[in-house]
Design a protein around this nucleic acid. Structure first.
Lengths: 103, 103
DNA sequence: CGCTGACATCAGCATGCGCTGATACTATCG
DNA sequence: CGATAGTATCAGCGCATGCTGATGTCAGCG
């Protein structure tokens, strides 16, 4: 239910600034300059985080002249959401039937 | 769509051993000894992680004599899964309508 | 062409945090 | 009552990683 790939995605999401970027990109596609203005972080810092997000498959880039648009890929987030929902469902079943291992 | 509380939950999940604990507890309620046997980690290490999981509201304890059973709480995981699914849905809408900010 | 602005890369620093060993506490058993 | 087993707490160490400043590259514009 929980793939090992999900571990990496969670690690990538587990940073306040990266999560902020994700929420901003969910609403509209932006380029680095916009993200600098929105978050107040340095351009270098944002560029590093965007690299991490890109390598994790969470965002994809669209070069546009000297600008670089960043778009949020829904598939990765959906996959993680599904895995977590599956875990929660299993836990609910475990709690309902009081499934436990004897000591 | 993404509450600030979700940030903390994600940070807590962003550790391989803690995620392992979560998947094990999803299937059956266990006590620390079982988790030591399953994961191969030291008891001290597990106890520290279980404390983090407890404080994040991801697991709850059930004392049973000198044992301590740990049960996975589905609500927290469900809330996070819902938030992530909402983000993914927003991103899908953004991609479909090509919503972007001009440079 | 030079210049500027958008963006990426790299090395260094500093903080966070996961792991460990030592220790203490409690419940059960002989 | 010891003795032991299950568990929690704490201080310390070491590594991972996020932030920064300097630098490089490329595109557009005068």
């Amino acid at each position: 239910m929980l793939m090992s790939a999900d571990t990496d995605v969670i690690r990538v999401l587990a940073d306040p600034l990266r999560l902020r970027i994700i929420t901003l990109l969910a609403r509209e596609t932006l380029c680095t300059t916009h993200l600098v203005a929105e978050t107040g972080a340095r351009q270098t810092n944002l560029s590093n985080h965007l690299r991490v997000l890109r390598e994790a498959g969470l965002v994809e880039t669209e070069p546009c002249g000297r600008f670089t648009y960043y778009r949020l890929r829904p598939e990765t987030l959906e996959g993680l959401a599904g895995s977590l929902a599956g875990l929660a469902a299993t836990a609910r079943e475990t709690a309902a039937t009081d499934r436990r291992r004897a000591c």
